[in-house]
Design a protein around this nucleic acid. Sequence first.
DNA 1: ACTCACTCATAACCCCAGCTTATGAGCCGA
DNA 2: TCGGCTCATAAGCTGGGGTTATGAGTGAGT
Lengths: 314, 314
Amino acid sequence: MSEYEAGDAPEPSLARRVPDLAALELLLAVARLGSLGRAAKAVGVSQPAASARIRSMERQLGVALVHRSPAGSRLTDAGGVVTEWARRVVEAAEAFDAGAAALRGRRDSRLRVTASLTVAEYLLPGWLVALRAARPETAVSLQAGNSVAVAAQVRAGAADLGFVEGSGVPEGLDGAVIGHDRLLVVVAPSHPWARRRRGLPPAELAGAALVLREQGSGTRQVLDEALAPYGGLGVPLLELASTTAVKSAAVTGAGPAVLSELAVADEVAARRLVAVGVSGLDLTRALRAVWPRGQRPSGPARDLLSLTRTGKGA
Amino acid sequence: MSEYEAGDAPEPSLARRVPDLAALELLLAVARLGSLGRAAKAVGVSQPAASARIRSMERQLGVALVHRSPAGSRLTDAGGVVTEWARRVVEAAEAFDAGAAALRGRRDSRLRVTASLTVAEYLLPGWLVALRAARPETAVSLQAGNSVAVAAQVRAGAADLGFVEGSGVPEGLDGAVIGHDRLLVVVAPSHPWARRRRGLPPAELAGAALVLREQGSGTRQVLDEALAPYGGLGVPLLELASTTAVKSAAVTGAGPAVLSELAVADEVAARRLVAVGVSGLDLTRALRAVWPRGQRPSGPARDLLSLTRTGKGA
DNA sequence: ACTCACTCATAACCCCAGCTTATGAGCCGA
DNA sequence: TCGGCTCATAAGCTGGGGTTATGAGTGAGT
């Protein structure tokens, strides 16, 4: 009796078709160690369990992954390819884990970070993974919030280092620009704007019904300011609570959205969204690290800061 | 009695600390739809199941992710951040799935692709995801192999489109350069070479004991040729069967390795590996799409080809 | 040539994570 | 005040994945 009706999940879910993380980790271990048994030990399960897991993975994928022999197990060609794909998943999971560990936020952390949502969502996990690789002993705690909250935390000494996006260094703090963030107008590939060759006139953007974050969000402020000379932001098509929701709405073709390039990099690369140029409008804002005035970051804070300099932050 | 001894898995495995894919998908659905119940329906489970899953995820992560209210569920600040991290994992899983589906290779596919291991491992999944987004009805089959095998497949008409790395267009085929691949010398951050400021003299590279793929691999051939004028490749420190294994060895500090920049991009970004410059040595090779002479790609092949043009292929 | 040490596979058993359905309780708008 | 939405709780089932114990190959070393 449980009929579909959702209009959302046509296929039997990714999770059914992709092996779980434990299986992927096991596969990586096999690739690295050249034997099911050793891989089993490495991931902390019995050899039969590992054997069965790999086997069921091969059944699930419909592809032979390893050549078993009494001398050990070697990846097949397909196995090698799959293993590399698996590595990407595991790496994303590691970033997730590094972030989550920081978010869990033990108060005894050696480094207390507070960051704007944009930085926390898109940049920080990578830094944390790098930091963990370089200084495994550094426990980091993370508090995410808007720019005002970030500044307050740092000022109050509740965080050693903060990251904000915005036009200036908050009152009473020192800071350094570590990158830039540009807002992009994005539409689904089917949208007429996707086929424009010339940049969009700002007035047309201002007049359009857009999918936006709710009033008060950082990206919306920037957009408001930038469009003020052109009659200001029009009435939104949709106001949504999270960046993720806005992105989804744009992808499904609800309408044009304006989002950080960091937020939509993947979607643009995969052609799920198309960035539309806007002529003569500067939608760039600086990303800054901030700390209490006069107290130059040292120790763990300095370590983290140095990782941000050359990061992929555009 | 099961003592550690592996020297490999000190921590209780990622999979214990990261929610599984189904849970992450569910979280994305909640972010998108604003209600546990609707999200549950969207992913095809009952509402109590969704509720429990989110709750256990919050317990696992030690962070409140959603604000429940009789009017629906909104993400907390932390929840929004976590959701974005989750999205990255799910996207990697989607790439995995797209690749796996192609590898499973139904013979009735509309587009039969054959690709070198490098292309299949690092570039193709992204293209397949993009293709799926643009043309959901196109079923793709993938055969991975070395450049000779790829050429043979295309020549025999067993594939509509091939991708190879190497210096020339294989006999009897037409092709187009779609990108370039550079080999990088990489070492663990602790290795002395990591601190070099000047490029490495080729002779020193030739004389060094390196971690390499086994004889016959494409990357090894390029290296052999490039180093011939400098006394040729020295005796390897380690010969391993897969790119993955070589990478792991390099990361754990076994010694310098030479790998495609595509293969080590993530590791370099996360500072797990450091790229060492080599002065005056060209380790670049072209990546080419190839097809039977005279038969310009059309239909699905053309669709895919157009996606490769602007891809992230360096 | 024989044995040892390693490979992976099979069998029998067990357990708990996560699902389901049925139900209840709170809040909002008509 | 009623109906419809929200999420939470309870009780019960199922099966995937784990374990130990064992067997059957293969290759290397004496």
